[in-house]
Computed example of a mutant assay.
Amino acid sequence: MKEKNIFGLIHSMDQVTNYLIIQWNKMFNESLGISHILVLSHLKDNGKSRPSDIARTLGLTPPTLTHLSEKLVQKKLATRLADDDDRRIIYLAITDKGLDLVKKANEEGKTLRKNLFDKLTAEEQQQLLSIYRKLNDSIRN
């Protein structure tokens, strides 16, 4: 790919991402960002988890996860649990209120995706998904 094209590609990707974030913030009026929802979704899907494992899985730094989890605990969307055998080990777990919020976020996210991705054919959506998976796999290795 020519150098000029790569910067155009990056710029286009940034524009779509920024658009999605702005629309998400307008729709989801809970004073939480996408990263908070990702943490809650991880807890919903995986059960109680060590913060270091959540950070690694989501590609976040431990201090970032600490900041995110602090707000989630403060809003009673998640709770901290000590390990039964080793009290030094702390887990983060989702609460019922957190589960309800993830459900709401997913419903509103569907609307956002529909508004944007319905402009693509089913084949184009599948191609885009395949491309992003391939890129994500390459940056994790």
Rank of each mutant, 00 (worst) to 15 (best):
L81R: 11
E108R: 04
D53Y: 02
F7V: 08
I21H: 06
T121I: 11
D84G: 06
Y132I: 13
Q126A: 15
E107H: 10
A82Q: 15
R140K: 10
K103G: 01
T66P: 05
T121N: 13
A78G: 02
Q127A: 14
Y19L: 10
L65W: 00
Q126W: 11
L81C: 09
K104I: 09
G47E: 03
L101S: 02
S69H: 00
R50V: 13
L43W: 01
N25I: 04
I37C: 02
A55M: 01
D86W: 06
T57N: 06
E30M: 09
T79N: 06
H11V: 12
E124C: 06
G98Y: 00
L116R: 08
L128D: 06
K26D: 07
P63T: 00
L128V: 13
Q127V: 12
R140N: 06
D100R: 15
D84C: 04
L81T: 07
D83L: 09
T79K: 05
T66G: 14
L60P: 00
L43C: 04
V73H: 04
D84V: 04
Q127G: 11
G98H: 00
S31V: 04
D86N: 15
N18D: 10
I34K: 03
T64D: 07
S130F: 10
D96F: 14
Q127N: 15
I22D: 13
K4C: 10
I89G: 08
K44Y: 10
S31G: 06
A122E: 13
T111D: 07
L40Q: 03
Q74H: 09
N18K: 05
I22Q: 12
D14Y: 09
K119P: 01
V73L: 12
K44I: 06
N136L: 06
R133V: 08
I94C: 02
D83Q: 11
D85I: 13
N29R: 14
K4W: 11
T121M: 14
N18I: 05
L43V: 03
A93W: 07
D85Y: 15
I22G: 10
L135W: 02
L101Y: 02
D137F: 05
T121C: 14
D45S: 08
T121Y: 10
K114Q: 15
D86M: 07
I131D: 06
Y19S: 08
L116N: 04
G8R: 09
L68N: 02
L99F: 14
K97C: 13
K2P: 11
H42A: 04
D96N: 15
T64M: 15
